[in-house]
Amino acid sequence: MIELKSLYKSFEDKDVLIDINAQFENGKTNLIIGQSGSGKTVLMKSIVGLLTPEKGKILYDGRNFLSMSKNEKKTLRREMGMIFQSAALFDSQTVLENVMFPLDMFSNDTYRERVRRAQFCLDRVNLIDAQDKYPGEISGGMQKRVAIARAIALNPQYLFCDEPNSGLDPKTSLVIDALIHDITTEYNMTTIINTHDMNSVMGIGDSIIFIYQGQKEWEGDKTQVFTATNQRFNDFIFASDLLKKVREEETHK
């Protein structure tokens, strides 16, 4: 479980995160949603330590990340996996080498065992056939899946995904969502996902927090979305006519 306690982050004179409190439980896909520019990426980068918040606490199963020493942080990092908005695969390495990279760097297994583990992860995301290709030679959706395989190579306890669906078609998005959700429940990980994709919200929204201009406006889960009364939340979720219609039908049932 990851807990955030009154987190603040600003750039120069601009407050980007204001008093964020939240809990992300394990075995669940925890969504952070909000408009473009609302601060989702900044929040996620603060949680994983790529940015340093000014105030607040980040507790990884009770361990305060911000007061850790450099070495403790390094150890904790081994328990984290992250999937970036742009997949961020190492483009000088093949797919298999990408997935093996964290193992090469941190595990003491033999070469054989590392290859086998990497192939297992690639198989998990259905990409075993592409193992000798380079990231430039595979599609965006495949790159995202390789990124997932790389993120889970070391059996992380915490998984972070920054807009795993951006730039993908709806069907591929569903595949990625299902993959992340399955892996999360299978290994009982604490998974946090940034998204503004409504299919993800309704599909894997085990727990949702809605950020509006750096503040948490609403929290709940996917079953509570249609009955939410927060105006800003509704304006964000039901922005399209199609979704408005769906809501009407749902509420008139």
């Binding site: 994983v48 992250m82 908005q85 742009s86």
Partner: peptide
């Protein structure tokens, strides 16, 4: 290029 495509961030996240 590694910086703007977040490959360096990916390394940092792994604890490298």
């Amino acid at each position: 290029t590694m910086r703007v495509t977040q490959q360096i961030d990916a390394l940092e996240i792994m604890g490298v």
